[in-house]
Simulated scan of single mutants.
Amino acid sequence: MAEQMVSVSRVIKASPEAIFDVLADPARHAEIDGSGMVQKVRGDGTRLALGAKFGMDMKMGPLPYKISSTVVEFEENELIAWAHFGKHRWRYELEATEVDGVPATNVTETFDWSTARLPKAIELAGYPKKNPVSMEATLGRLAAILEA
């Protein structure tokens, strides 16, 4: 359901392949996370693929916790999404484009709670309204890394 998704897009002056390589490397998620919650990858940080499982050390305010996620959508250089036990998804869609004749990519990050176990709890916690700010920051960090 579209009403249970929020998205933010940004054009980044980098190829879809370069951007996807960062997104598919869980060891880089803390580096690009605009929420400040992702601390570091747990495990070996193997490149993600459909069905891959990966863990993260997280922190919400002063409270540390661990989370395990599974890649639930995957199209090389175009789409990657993962979900954890709550079943809501973080999705990145990449579309090649150009800016002033330079190869670039339109990157859309989506927080999708249409698949969540408890969508009402997500809404009551205010995540749909809070997450776009963090998502904009994430895309800004991704752009800073790739456009440097």
Rank of each mutant, 00 (worst) to 15 (best):
L118N: 14
M135L: 15
L124Y: 02
V99A: 08
A104E: 13
D44Y: 04
I80T: 01
H88G: 05
G55A: 09
W90S: 13
E136I: 02
R117N: 11
T97D: 06
W113K: 00
F111E: 03
V133I: 12
N106M: 10
F111K: 02
H88D: 13
G140R: 12
G86Y: 07
A104V: 04
I122H: 05
M56Q: 14
D57P: 04
V133T: 13
F54A: 01
G43L: 03
D112F: 12
T110K: 01
G126P: 03
M60K: 15
F111Q: 01
V71S: 06
M60D: 07
E95F: 00
R47A: 11
E109D: 04
K120A: 12
D100K: 08
Y92Q: 04
I80K: 05
N106L: 15
P119H: 07
D57M: 05
K130P: 00
Y127R: 02
A125Y: 07
E123G: 00
G45R: 11
G45K: 08
W113L: 02
L142F: 11
D44A: 13
K40C: 13
I67A: 12
G55T: 10
A116N: 02
P64Y: 01
L50R: 07
A49L: 10
N106C: 09
R42G: 09
L94D: 02
E78R: 15
W82D: 15
E75Y: 05
H88Q: 15
